[in-house]
Amino acid sequence: MSAIKQHRRAGFPWLWTALAFGYVFLYAPILSLIVYSFNESRLVTVWAGFSTRWYGELMQNEQLLSAAWLSIKVAAVAATIAVVLGTLAAMTLVRFRRQWGARSMGIMVAAPLVMPEIILGLSLLLLFMSMADLIGWPASRGQGTIIMAHVTFCMAYVTVVVQSRLAYMDASLEEAAMDLGARPLKVFFTITLPVIAPSLVAGWLLAFTLSMDDLVVASFVSGPGATTLPMVVYSSVRLGVSPQINALATIIIAVVVVAVSVAGYLMYRQDKQRTNMQ
């Protein structure tokens, strides 16, 4: 068996070259960001010695910091609502597949995943304006409307993540609990939820990231006074490269790497448990 495998691996050396090239393509730009965030010079492309001064300036940038704080708040709230709605949607798509509305829900959940953000943003703005016109709510645009918009596309991602975990879950677990006397609501909270919990965490993190990252939709639906981090970054980047943004990028990358490593390790451990089970 191992002889066959080795033969197979040796047969495609170019495949491994392609893989290595792909990773270089994916990571070189990110590395360049990190390296130049420690550059003394204001000119991003000329190396003038190691310095952390841009991190210091970043910490002084009131506008950017308050935008970051707003983004974190919006992302946390939007991700939480998206997880609740996405879990319900996933339950429908997996468990009540024959229920009225399940089919149309499948399409409505799939569409936001690929829908160009610019259409989503424009359509939601028009909706909010017409709603304000008709029923007087939402009276003004800002945090609230950004959250609602983010929930809408984030819940689609959460649904996909939770759905795949639910589909993988043995449905007889729920039947067994019911058989032992637990009512449906109790079954959901004592059996289903604990079993799919890792996917809820993954879904929340994904939703949080997507919300933190969104420029286009937020630009449409936000109002005066509600400026998110991507909006500030965008207006600064439009004017050209700026070392402060490099410093910000490095911080974001560091946070993501730590979070993904921890999550990856937990998933790996759970996966191992699962394979032990089989």
Binding site: P29, L215, I252, Y268
Partner: peptide, 25 residues
């Protein structure tokens, strides 16, 4: 799994900033 994670990882960092990186390059 680790190789796949390496593909997904950039996706978790800011889209805007990844495009910005190319401006510098």
């Amino acid at each position: 799994m680790p190789l796949l994670m390496l593909v997904i990882l950039p996706f978790w960092t800011s889209f805007l900033i990844r495009i910005y990186a190319w401006m510098g390059i």
